[in-house]
Design a protein around this nucleic acid. Structure first.
Lengths: 241, 241
DNA sequence: GTTGACTCTAACGTTACGTCATACTTTATA
DNA sequence: TATAAAGTATGACGTAACGTTAGAGTCAAC
């Protein structure tokens, strides 16, 4: 398919296709001898991936890293994307809820605090408070265990593998390549089971040391692992933005 | 409230508040003598509006126009925003649906065409095909009537008023200020009842002349009105982008 | 009375394209 | 088959909405 056809099929502009080619994000498999770009079905599948990630707010740079990562798995990616889309939908629902309340508020049928007026908007702030706490609040450990149990032993094994791996690296610096690669696996793993923004991920890391029930469990794999993971997770979250 | 407090409440960055002040989108009611910005509750309400519109993809320039427009009505705006959010939710649902099918497709459980693989992504293309057609497809006129009926005579009156107004102007150029103001009213009216992107709006205009059932009904208000509206709607859609 | 958190303005940087300008190819039409 | 019309290519500059320093003033607290 040539650029315009792809454009019409997918809704992205021709310029965008050029741009993605320029930055090496999506290079068509073939070109005619006149230099026309020819996109294969495989290229289209990649484009689909790109658009999903883009919709989820990833930068093109990050998307490129993801797609070219050797550990990238298309099926895993789809499940991760689905979870993230579901989370966005919850956000949207929250906004819709807010606006409906605001309408009632305007009619004098409902009182609202300032905080309530901005619920659902905040895609960035207080990640620890807002997201992690929802997921890992009072019933944190129980919930956590329920999740792990629910997904059966095959997940437990992968979890253990990642933990052991991290424990091995815990005396390195948290921003070392090895540590970052390992913590990246952890991020991907979590996003197969649930849905974590980078901020939620970082907040979760803080929880690891703030809540000693976590600390204890994690440090079973090695003294100081929780602390190490916290640092690595913060570093990871910072870097990806 | 000072910048940081607003920032924490709403999740927008301090820099963003500065920026909105710079471009005159949101100027705090008061400042201290040292030049510190002080935001009132009213400023917060405006910020909420801005964030809703921003989330819906409006440019800051357009938002400014909307908010400063003399005909701007906060309640109307909320209802419009709610409808648009609901539409985005539908988009998101469509994407989720697509991704779930894609997952099944990957497992070989389902066949998919290329078109299906990109359903839900396209926020820009083929507006006529994709949006207008869904809404005004085969059962176009019936649906249309049902809607009008459903919302009772108070809407019918406003509709008539707008139509008559447009009919009066139909010998002017479609891009004249008067015509554009009148067609702008039509856009706002439609977005109170339903939900129309600019593209859908333009597509709807094309429908007015493409489908003679529309043409007939509209031209009751004045010969050539449908054609005139089509041009004005296209002009309007183009300008707002 | 000084430190640390907060604020200001000014100005350059960045991301993801949009928008020409100019030139070559391919397709449609007379 | 010539010639326009439509599509494509490569620059290269423009733009929107902030991010990110830098340098300096301000305010609350200990």
């Amino acid at each position: 398919m040539k650029v315009k056809e792809v454009s019409q099929l997918t809704g992205v502009s021709v310029r965008t296709l050029h741009h993605y080619d320029d930055i090496g994000l999506l290079t068509p498999d073939r070109t005619t001898e006149a230099g026309y770009r020819l996109y294969s079905d495989d290229n289209l599948a990649t484009l689909q991936q790109i658009l999903f990630f883009r919709e989820l707010g990833f930068s093109l740079k990050k998307i490129k890293e993801l797609l070219t990562s050797p550990s990238f798995d298309r099926e895993e990616a789809f499940e991760m994307q689905r979870n993230m889309l579901l989370e966005r939908r919850r956000q949207l629902d929250s906004m819709i809820d807010t606006i409906e309340k605001t309408i009632q508020h305007g009619k004098g049928e409902l009182a609202m605090t300032n905080e309530e007026k901005f619920k659902g908007f905040d895609f960035s702030k207080n990640p620890y408070e807002q997201e992690a706490r929802e997921r890992w609040g009072d019933k944190a450990v129980n919930e956590s265990n329920k999740r792990a149990a629910q997904f059966g032993p095959e997940y437990g094994e992968e979890m253990n593998r990642i933990y052991f791996n991290l424990a091995d690296l815990r005396h390195l610096s948290a921003d070392s390549d090895e540590a970052q690669a390992a913590i990246g696996e952890w991020f991907e793993f979590l996003n197969k089971i649930g849905s974590y923004s980078l901020e939620a991920f970082q907040g979760l890391g803080e929880m690891y040391v703030a809540d000693e029930r976590f600390t204890k469990n994690i440090d079973k794999f090695g003294e100081g692992l929780a602390e190490f993971m916290k640092d690595a997770m913060a570093e990871f979250a910072g870097k990806q933005k």
